[in-house]
C-alpha cells in the first residue's frame, strides 16, 4: 500500500503545549516541564487511517516570533498546520487569528488547519469559553479540538482527523509519482519502522 508523506507544522504562542502535544502523540510521553523549543524540532509518525497510511512529519516550531524571521522553511510544502492555544491564556487564543492569516498568505493553498485548545485538564482556570472558541472556528471553517497533552485527551483524535483531512485533500497526487513535491511524495511503505533512537526523556 502506498504511504503518503506529509509535513505538518505546529504553531502557537510560547508555552501553550505545542511540543507536548506532538510528543504525547508520537512517543506517548509527557513532561511537565518540557524543554523550551529553540527554532524547531522534528518528529515523525506513521498513521493508519481507513483510506490508507500517512506519514506525518511534524515540524514543531518555537513560540517566539523572532524565529519566524529566519526560518522561511517553516511553511514550505506543509500540508497541514496545527494551531495550538492554551485555554487558560486569553492572549494565546487571540493570536490564533494571526496564525491563520499568516498561513493563508504564506502556506500552500490547500493546507489543512486544525485548532487545538490545549490544557483542557485545567478546566478550572479556563479563560476562553468553549462556545466562543467553537463559534470562532466554525466561522473560519476549521475543526476545533479540546486537547490535553497531560491526560492525552483528544490528542489521538486530532492528529487522526488531521491525517485523514490531509489524505483527502491530497489524494489526487497519490496516482502521480510525486512529480512536483518531494514532501508529498509517494513512497512504498517502508518495512523499517521509523524509530527515533533517542532515549526516553531526551531532548526534543
Amino acid at each position: 500500500m502506498a504511504t503518503m508523506e506529509c509535513k505538518i507544522v505546529t504553531l502557537g504562542e510560547g508555552r501553550v503545549g505545542k511540543t507536548s502535544l506532538a510528543l504525547k502523540y508520537v512517543k506517548n510521553e509527557f513532561h511537565k516541564d518540557e524543554i523550551s523549543t529553540v527554532n524547531a524540532n522534528y518528529l515523525t509518525k506513521l498513521v493508519q487511517i481507513p483510506q490508507g497510511s500517512v506519514q506525518l512529519n511534524i515540524w514543531d516550531t518555537a513560540g517566539q516570533e523572532r524565529f519566524r524571521a529566519i526560518a522561511s522553511n517553516y511553511y514550505r510544502q506543509a500540508k497541514g498546520a496545527l494551531i495550538v492555544y492554551d485555554i487558560t491564556d486569553r492572549k494565546s487564543f487571540d493570536k490564533v487569528v494571526s496564525w491563520i492569516k499568516e498561513l493563508k498568505s504564506q502556506a500552500e493553498k490547500n493546507i489543512v488547519i486544525v485548532v487545538a485548545g490545549n490544557k483542557c485538564d485545567m478546566e478550572k482556570e479556563r479563560q476562553i469559553n468553549r462556545p466562543e472558541a467553537l463559534e470562532f472556528c466554525r466561522k473560519m471553517q476549521i475543526r476545533h479540538f479540546d486537547t490535553s497533552a497531560k491526560s492525552g485527551n483528544g490528542v489521538e483524535e486530532m492528529f487522526m482527523e488531521l491525517a485523514s483531512q490531509i489524505f483527502e485533500a491530497n489524494k489526487g497526487e497519490l496516482g502521480q509519482s510525486g512529480r512536483n513535491s518531494r514532501r508529498g511524495k509517494i513512497t512504498v511503505e517502508k518495512t523499517k519502522h521509523r524509530e527515533n533512537s533517542g532515549k526516553k526523556g531526551g531532548c526534543c
Binding site: L43, S197, K199, G202, C203
Partner: peptide, 8 residues
C-alpha cells in the same frame, strides 16, 4: 530526528 537526539 537524528539531530534532535544528539543530546542523548
Amino acid at each position: 530526528c537524528f539531530f534532535n537526539s544528539l543530546k542523548d
